[in-house]
Computed example of a mutant assay.
Amino acid sequence: MGSGLKLSHLVAGFIAVLLGYTSSVAIIFQALEVLGASQAEANSWMLALGVGMGASGLILSLRYRMPILTAWSTPGAALLVVGLDGVTMPEAIGAFLFCGLLLTLTGLSGWFEKLSHLIPDAIGNALLAGILFKFGLGIFVSTEENLPLVAVMCAVYLAGRIWFARFAIPAVLLAGCLFCAATGAFEQGALDLSLARPVAVLPEFSLPVLIGVGLPLFIVTMASQNTPGVVTLRAAGYAPPVSACLTVTGLTTLVLAPFGGYAFNLAAITAAICAGPEADDNPDTRYRAVVVAGLLYMLVGILGAAVVGLFTIAPKALVMTVAGLALLGTIGTSLQAALAAPERREAALVTFMTTVSGIGFLGIGAPLWAVLLGMGTGAALSLSARARRPAAARP
């Protein structure tokens, strides 16, 4: 693999890890605070999460030669912030193990893979475009925070698209970092240089906690992470082994839950960075970007607080702009595919707008509601069209 590693693989893998940590690591810290975790336990969580994402992503991408990136459950972490109040650390670990067991059984049974095949391509592409849309908007929103930085990065991007398309995103990242260094935009702070060490917590199984925390954690992970993760890979032209992916992430959760690896799943947003043409023109070798990301995830986990601190000093405008520019092509391609067929256009638009709205009911986030509403709209319009069709024209 080494001889075939490209700069684009390195940059895509780095951007995926950068975005993965800066976008949601603060939520993990909030969950740790609710549990009253010690610094050693907090470092163990970051070790387990980093190694878990890295190892599971490496296993899947190398085994299937696809850009199958995994992630911690971000909506799951948000749920933990709310749901862990009054829960002890051993009880929380028991809930994590229960979630891991459910994820593993889902993968082994194969039912989720069968359901995922029922989602039409137009709905899937609309869902992906809606998920990534806020990152495209983030480019323009970031101008309020640091207009000169965003202007420089966008100018470099346009120049890159004209003169050096293959290196446009690496050039944007480099220009953004140099600008931040020159203007003092990186946040200053002392870094903890100690390595993270695993701290195992023996689980306790409390039925109310299993039902109130473990089961909802499984549901939001499946609905808000694994469903978009499958759609992301299919929209990029891959046929991911869904059941194997769920089995691997479920087993990873079971192994690492005692150390803080509360839930692992397929990545969606960061996977789109590694699965898109910016990572590699050749779809057959884009998995190497995930290999880079997997190794970086493991390094971040082992180095613990030190590397997490490095990721968090980057200005939000830098992260959002480079992510938005890296995803522009994927957003455009997904929208084009979603709206291409006139008979599915309204259903795709409903899916897209529901996803962008960010609505949530019954503890279930917008992605699953978007799929349900989009497919419902498509089915209703299809039945209506059949009813209006002359009898002689019906099959």
Rank of each mutant, 00 (worst) to 15 (best):
R63F: 10
L49K: 00
L383G: 05
V292F: 10
A293F: 01
F14V: 01
I273R: 15
A235F: 01
L299A: 14
R345W: 05
I359W: 09
M375Y: 07
W369N: 09
R386S: 10
W369Q: 11
L174A: 15
S23P: 08
G229N: 07
L105W: 03
G83T: 06
T351F: 01
F361L: 15
A263T: 07
F14T: 02
R197C: 13
G189Q: 01
A289G: 15
L373N: 03
L202W: 09
M298G: 15
L7S: 06
F352R: 03
G86V: 04
A151C: 06
A78Q: 06
A16D: 11
A95G: 05
R344W: 07
F205D: 04
N146H: 08
G276H: 11
V17K: 00
F186E: 15
N282Q: 12
V290G: 10
Y238L: 11
V87G: 02
V291K: 07
L339F: 00
L295R: 09
V201W: 08
P198T: 03
W163L: 14
Q188A: 14
A306G: 07
F186G: 06
A200F: 07
A181V: 15
G124F: 04
N226V: 04
D85F: 13
Q30G: 12
A171M: 13
A155L: 15
F264S: 07
F167Y: 15
G138H: 03
S116T: 15
S206M: 04
L80I: 01
A337R: 05
L335N: 13
I219G: 10
L339I: 02
V248Y: 02
G2A: 10
R65Q: 10
E144G: 15
A151M: 11
S334T: 04
I359Q: 12
I139A: 03
E91H: 04
L84R: 09
A289P: 14
G294C: 01
Q225W: 04
G130W: 06
S334C: 10
G83H: 06
P228C: 05
A257N: 06
T321W: 00
S24Y: 05
K316E: 08
P258N: 02
L327W: 03
V156F: 10
P277E: 14
T312A: 09
A289M: 12
P208A: 12
G212V: 13
M353V: 14
A159I: 13
G304D: 02
V141L: 14
A379V: 11
V87Q: 02
L325W: 06
A155Y: 15
T253V: 08
W163P: 11
Y21Q: 00
A275C: 06
L10V: 11
A185P: 09
A306V: 00
G276Q: 03
A347L: 11
V300Y: 00
G363H: 12
T377M: 14
A95L: 01
G50N: 11
A306R: 03
P241A: 12
W163G: 07
T70W: 01
R344K: 07
A293R: 04
G130K: 00
A275Q: 09
V141G: 10
G176V: 11
F361G: 09
A348D: 05
S3E: 13
M222F: 03
G52D: 10
C180M: 05
